[in-house]
Structures are given as C-alpha cells and as structure tokens.
Design a protein around this nucleic acid. Structure first.
Length: 618
RNA sequence: GCCGGGGUAGCUCAGUCUGGUAGAGCAGCUGAUUCGUAAUCAGCAGGUCAGGGGUUCGAAUCCCCUCCUCGGCUCCA
C-alpha cells in the first residue's frame, strides 16, 4: 500500500477523519478507505510546513547546540519555531540556517514516529536538556505520547509528518522576532523564526510576490507618496494628520455616510471630547476599561476625562426627555472621535492609533423590535461596505463569555435574535463561543480586501450593561416604565483604520468618486493654456476635482507626474484638441478614449461620480 | 510594555565597522527649451547627522539615557 500512496504523491493519509503518516497505512485493515493527502491539499500543506519547522529546529540545534527548543507549529501561511537562546539571531544567521536546512533535506532522512509512555518521554527530554518540552509534557494528560525523530533530531510531536526530509521542495525563512513563552508577557521572551514552505517552487515564488505586493500597497508608504496623511513625532505617536488629499477623501466618505444614515432614519449627533470622570465611573468604563483611558485632567477642582467611547453621551441625549414606546426605535449616529491609550509597541500607521473617529451608532428599541433592527443594520452595513468595493466577508457571532452582566436568559434571547437575523438574511457565519464582550453578544464582520486579507470593521453589539447602569427607560403601552434594548454598532469601525484598508485595497488607485484629483489637465505647449483653462473651468463648475498641469514641461513628464499620483483621468490638450474643440482622455492604466465634446464628458464623469461607480464609465 | 532592527536634506539612501572640514538621486527654486501620452538641460539652494549626556585634541561614527520608527509578542476599532 505505501508504494501506491507514494506514486500518488501522498505525504500523509486521512482515515476516518484523522490524519496519519503514510507509514500508518500498513497497520490499517485492507478493506477501509483511506484518502491520500498531497502537499497541495489544505491538510497536506500544513504537514509540509510543520515538518519544515522540525527541519529548521534541527538546523538551529546543529548550528547552535545551546539553543533550547520550544514550540514550532504551522500557521495560516507558513510556520515558526521558538527558541530560547542567549544571543538573538541575526539575518546572517537566518541564511546559515537556511543553508543547513538544505543540507538536512538532501540527507533524505525519514521522519520516524515513536510512541512511548509519558514518564519515559519526560525522562528523555530531561536528559536532552529541553526544559520547554518537559513543561509541555507535564501538562499532557495522556499516558502515552508520540515523538518524531529525523536524522538524529528528536521532537515531541503529535504528527503526522512527511515520509522524509527530501519531500521539502520549496521553503524560505522570512523573519526573526521576539515572542513570549506561551504568549504570556510575564514569562521569558524567546526568539522566533518565521518561515514558509510550499509544494513547489512556483507556489513559493507566487507567495513571495504576494508579500512584495503587500509591501507596495502598505498604506504608510502610499500615504506619504500620495500625500494623504502623516504622523508627526512632535505631535505624538498614534495621532493622525489628514493632509488635503486624505481630508477630501474623508469628507467624501463622511458625506456619503451622513446622507445614508439620514435616509435610514438615524438621527445625527455631536458630542464633546471630554466629560467628568464621574460619568465614566457610572458607565463602568473607569472600572473595566481604565487601562485604555488617559489620566484625568483637573478643571476647577473636578476631574475630567477625554472620551474613549461615545455611548454615555448618546445615553445622556436619550435621557434628556421622557421616552415613549411610540418613539422607538431611536437610532442615534455620530462620527465620534475617541482617544484610547495603546501601548507604544502596538501602534501601526492608520490601523492602530491613539485617536480615531468611530462611525458609531446606538439603537434603542423594544425587545420585540430587536431582530428587525438587527436585520436592518445588517442590510445597511452590507450596502455601505459594498459601495466601497467590499463584497466578501467573514461573519462571526460571539456568544456569552465566562464573565458577564445581565441574566443568562437575556443573553440567550439576544443571541437568538442575532442568530435569527443572520439566518434570515442567508448570511453564513461562524460561532465564536465565549468571545462576546462582557456586556452582550455581538456580530463581527470582517471584510476581505482585493488581496483576500480579512479586516475587522463592522461590529453589532447588544449592550445589557449601560441601560442598567444609567437606568434608561421608556413608557410602554401599559403606562409603566420599561428598559429598552440598546444595540451598539459601527460599520467602518474607525475612519482611520477604514481609510488605511481602502488605501491598501485599491493600492492607492481610488475609484473616481473618492479620488482626491479626478481629472488632470495637461497642456502640450504654452499656446494651449487658454483653451485648457476653458476646459478646466467647465469641469470645475460641474463640481469635478481637477488639477491643472500647465507648467512648462514635456507631456511625458506631466503624464508621469499624474500617473504616479494615480489620477483616474487625464485630458491632454494640444493643437488637435484646440482645433477640433474635442477632448481625448487618457485613462489610468494608459488607454486613450474619445474624442468627446466637453459637455458629454462632464455628463459621463458626473454619472460615474454620483453613482459611486467602482469602474470607469468611459 | 517586552525582544530585535533602524533614525543622516521634504523623500529614497551612501558615509558609521576602521573617529579627522557632511554626500548622491528625486522633489524645491532660477534660467534656457515650446515639446503629443511614465522623468529636457543647466545652475542654485537645502542638514544642530532624532534629542540629551559622556569618552576624545577632535564624534554622524565609540559609550550611556530618552524619544520616535520598523518586524514580531501581548492587546485591539
């Protein structure tokens, strides 16, 4: 049997839903069905990468015998292995390790599985001087454990593994990083080496190209190149300066957002950036969220706090009048700027900042309105996301965590409402058990960008905590006081992060409606300026954002200037245009279209802008 | 916050190992050129070498501290 499997290119097998070594096929009865796993399959590639991590650990042990091995799993797109070593690895070490790995792969040593009693394994790894393995073993409850040996390198491992090292055909070590043992910041910092492996060279090359593409799209780099935003050391880390080009995009997003919220019967609010500390004590943030809040400032003897969230303000507006069931649902929305303390090491461009604007809303409704409201929010969210070009998502439903407020009954009813809304909309979702926030269950939507990367943006959360703490109510049909359900939601999450995602999604080449400069006008020679000025005036009067490139430079220079700024359309004006009174347009990407008369061009362009089209209409 | 890499002109980077008068390209300014789809030529200007302290006759360069930044860990909109 193993011979046949080998011919099929199997590196492991699946039998009865468990994944085993190819060698295990021999011990199985003849009449069972086994599925060969190739390195190209989902499980197969994980095995390939896991085995590669073993080979890397082997190489490290040969080069640095004093290094202690910790853990080395496969990951979403590669693998890593953690080592405890005095002197951290250098990039040169990485090269040496790669060389050594190639040597080990060429040795073609088989991966050999051995099963032994746990106590014996503990003794073995103690003798080998591997304290991390011993620590893991002491926590394993099974009486027997498996180890894998390959060319003299033994590792505690469940497996399965490749038949031999020679099966590793394409791998690369990528980076070095510090990582806490067991992810616990109170424990020792180990040295982690990241790498990846693929079934063949071509796939590896593709992945490395993908990494290059990711680098090219980095919003921090494009943010500078396209003059969208900056972060200034003197002003402070994690605080964003929106330059004119970024600000016009933000304004366009905000206008769209407000317009659609009004259409969907939200009421818009504005609230202050700070409030008395007492408010935050009452809301519970001072107890539960303090580590993300800044120190209070004193104003005439009272402590004030810059806001990390908008909810208490919205509550205050809700409470500013006696509410009737007739008013519900009340939907309050605000582009609310909040400030949260983030540890210095986690800040990252627009993705992780200390001051940001949430597209926040709070919906107050009766319990029997909840499901309908959630459906409505889901529709609204997907519409907004789609407008920006996000059409695929991962949706998660997070249920009750161990520590929670409210009653289990409340939790169940609202979790069911969230679930029912998702199912009614036919949206596929995954349940994240116990991942809800302490105050209520939630739906999270992660959008997939043009490179297939997921980003957490939208969140819809039921909140049992705040209505209780602020004792909000409405008068029901029965004339008595009832507590409304409060739903907290954000669609884009934060404008800063969402902007960063958009930059990377479009690689800086925004659709026309979002582009800071929509049309660049290029003159061939000085004598064309007066005609070009007429064209500019016409386009500007039609509300189109234009840039005049009339300076005394060659056309090629000006085309390049506009192209690197990713201007969607260029109108080039020379003798031909001036004489015919028509315009040709150079599209982003280089195609020429036209000739058009100015009036038509304005019509098409406005249509493309107003429909928020993601593709060119020309 | 932690581990490691880094900070030199607006931007990208050389110079640091081996201490001895701060350099290039792009961008900017000035002039020439009047030109048809990704860079015309020439000239000029531009720096407390992140900040502070120390070693030295002398520090961008060596040492210490602080800040910022990058890759991760932990955490997260």
């Amino acid at each position: 049997m193993p011979g046949v499997l080998k011919e099929l290119g199997a590196i492991a097998i699946r039998f009865d839903s468990s994944v085993l070594d190819v060698g295990d096929a021999e011990s199985l009865p003849d009449d069972v069905t086994i599925e060969p796993l190739t390195p190209g399959s989902r499980d197969g590639i994980a095995i390939l990468r896991h085995s590669t991590s073993h080979v890397m650990a082997h190489a490290v042990k040969e080069l640095f015998p004093e290094a202690k091995v910790a853990i080395g799993p496969s990951t979403e797109d590669g693998f890593y292995y953690d080592f405890d070593i005095e002197k951290p690895f250098t990039p040169e070490d990485l090269q040496r390790i790669e060389e050594k790995m190639k040597e080990i792969i060429d040795r073609d040593s088989p991966f050999v599985r051995k099963v032994l009693p746990r106590d014996e394994a503990i003794e073995l790894f103690e003798k080998m001087g591997e304290p991390y393995k011993v620590e893991i073993l002491r926590e394993i409850e099974d009486d027997e454990v498996s180890i894998y040996e390959e060319g003299g390198f033994t590792d505690l491992c469940k497996g399965p593994h490749l038949p031999s090292t020679r099966y590793i055909r394409a791998f690369k070590l990528l980076s070095i990083a510090g990582a806490y043992w067991r992810g616990d910041e109170k424990r020792k910092m180990l040295q982690r080496i990241y790498g990846t492996a693929f079934e063949d060279r071509k796939k590896l090359k593709e992945y490395l190209n993908f990494l290059e593409e990711v680098k090219k799209r980095d919003h921090r780099r494009l943010g500078r190149e396209l003059d969208l935003f900056s972060i200034n050391e003197e002003i402070g880390p994690g605080l964003i300066l929106w330059h004119p080009n970024g600000a016009i995009i933000r304004k366009t997003i905000e206008d769209f957002w407000r317009e659609e919220h009004l259409r969907d019967d939200y009421k818009l609010l504005y609230t202050p950036h700070m409030a008395k500390l007492n408010l935050w004590e009452k809301s519970g943030h001072w107890d539960f969220y303090r580590e993300n809040m800044y120190s209070p400032m004193e104003v005439e003897g009272a402590d004030y706090e810059i806001k990390p969230m908008n909810c208490p303000f919205h509550i205050a507006i809700y409470k500013s009048a006696l509410r009737s069931y007739r008013e519900l649902p009340i939907r309050y929305a605000e582009l609310g700027t909040v400030y949260r303390y983030e540890r210095s090491g986690v800040l990252h461009g627009l993705f992780r900042v200390r001051g940001f604007t949430q597209d926040d809303a709070h919906i107050f409704c009766m319990e029997d309105q909840m499901e309908e409201e959630i459906k409505r929010v889901l529709d609204f969210t997907l519409f907004i996301l789609k407008t920006f070009g996000f059409e695929t998502y991962d949706i998660y439903l997070s249920t009750r965590p161990e520590k929670f407020v409210g009653t289990p009954d409340n939790w169940e009813r609202s979790t069911n409402a969230l679930k029912a809304a998702l199912e009614h909309k036919g949206l596929a979702y995954e349940v994240d058990p116990g991942e809800g926030v302490f105050y209520g269950p939630k739906i999270d939507i992660k959008v997939k960008d043009s490179l297939g990367r997921p980003w957490q943006c939208s969140t819809i959360q039921v909140d049992f905590n705040i209505p209780e703490r602020f004792d909000i109510s409405y008068r029901g049909v029965d004339g008595r006081e009832h507590q409304p359900i409060m739903i907290h939601r954000a669609l884009m999450g934060s404008l800063e992060r969402f902007f960063g995602i958009l930059i990377e999604h479009y690689a800086g080449a925004f659709p026309l409606w979002l582009s800071p400069v929509q049309i660049g006008i290029i003159t061939v020679a000085e004598r064309h300026i007066s005609y070009a000025e007429d064209v500019l005036k016409g386009l500007k009067n039609a509300g189109i954002r234009c840039e005049a490139l009339f300076e005394n430079e060659k056309v090629g220079y000006k085309v390049r200037h506009a192209t690197v700024r990713k201007v969607p359309y260029l109108v080039i004006i020379g003798d031909r245009e001036a004489e015919s009174d028509k315009l040709t347009v150079r599209k982003r990407g280089g195609d020429n279209v036209g000739p058009y008369v100015l009036g038509d061009l304005i019509t098409w362009i406005r249509e493309e802008i107003e429909s928020r089209s993601l593709t060119s209409r020309l």
